[in-house]
Design a protein around this nucleic acid. Structure first.
Lengths: 181, 181
DNA sequence: CGGAACATGTAATACGTTACATGATTAA
DNA sequence: TTAATCATGTAACGTATTACATGTTCCG
């Protein structure tokens, strides 16, 4: 789902400015998506051109016009259609895990440090998410939040329980010439 | 980590053609990264220009030259440097979860179907990964594989145990006018 | 006085994908 | 005979990011 569609979706919760949508991304979607102003503002302009949102400009003194966007019936319909499509598969990218694929090139101490840091990272993100969870109003938000917390917890436990596998590599008896295949 | 760097990394396991690197991506890295020929071939050409890999062409009859790439000392050094950098944070994108954020726009039956499908999906991916796990030779590969299996399992359990939260939304007493904020 | 929050936008750039182009060999 | 595997590449396109551009207001 692209930023444009997600902006449209966020507007189903009520009208908002680009600035507020950015905050909504951070507050409610940061677990699964994020967006910068440079993708939000053009998206909003495009949605307006397409007639999927309408825009009311409030002029402010010494500041850019505050542009308040609302979803139109056409926009609502479009978004409804979108969320009835089968969702694309989850995508997970991890430089941490990718690096561990090459742990044969690192010294044991470095592998340990890498894992330590990653655990601390996961812990912190989990805590941040947990804290936010309580403040969420809707069930969906709490559900998502809980999902994130669960995932982080599982990752932490896996790392703690299995790190020895790559920290103390079992000596290979007959080190065959390796190949990519 | 970009495809170019990952190609360089895969070549630390031994020489390979672009075609074989594509397979390596699928076999060993699919959990955390994937790449198409259209990003691999240009990467390899660029790495060659940069002197980080060398290329030996084997001419074949009625088929494009088989180009076998090897990492050079400079390439090895470059990659070493790369994996000693602090890894970028994990990225997780989920259209499924994003869709659930908008479950207030879906009928209960659709929410249930969505979750059912997602669980089946996760189960299948977990099984595929589990199967592959046994065949992996190196500890790092088994470690990564195990990580993936653990994550899928955690996701499945969370969905099964918490789906009722969004399948049967508790009736709101005084439905306040919602807002994005 | 400094930094966060408010407020919107463009330009240049990076990174990757799908579609296009071409074709032989081998196993089911 | 049909699909998979082998084998390499370019062109067009999409999508998002970082850097640039420009301020005011409010809180500590």
């Amino acid at each position: 789902m692209d930023i444009r569609t997600l902006c449209l979706g966020l507007l189903t919760f009520g009208e908002a400015t680009g600035y507020e949508i950015k905050k909504a991304f951070q507050d409610r979607m940061s677990m699964v998506y994020d967006a910068s102003f440079s993708s939000i503002y053009p998206s909003l302009n495009r949605l307006t051109k397409e007639g999927l949102v309408s825009c009311r400009a409030e002029s402010q003194s010494r500041r850019p016009d505050r542009k308040v966007y609302s979803i139109t019936p056409a926009g609502r319909e479009e978004f409804l259609k979108e969320i009835h499509n089968a969702p694309a598969a989850d995508k997970f990218r991890s430089d941490f895990l990718a690096t561990l694929m090459f742990s044969h090139l690192l010294q044991p101490g470095n592998v340990s440090r890498l894992i330590d840091n990653q655990i601390m990272d996961y812990r912190q993100k989990k805590d941040e998410l947990s804290q936010g969870c309580g403040m969420k109003q809707s069930q969906s938000e709490q559900f998502l939040c809980g999902f994130g917390v669960t995932m982080y917890q599982a990752a932490i436990e896996y790392l703690e329980q299995n790190r020895h596998l790559i920290e103390a590599p079992a000596p290979v008896r007959a080190p065959a010439k390796q190949s990519v295949k």
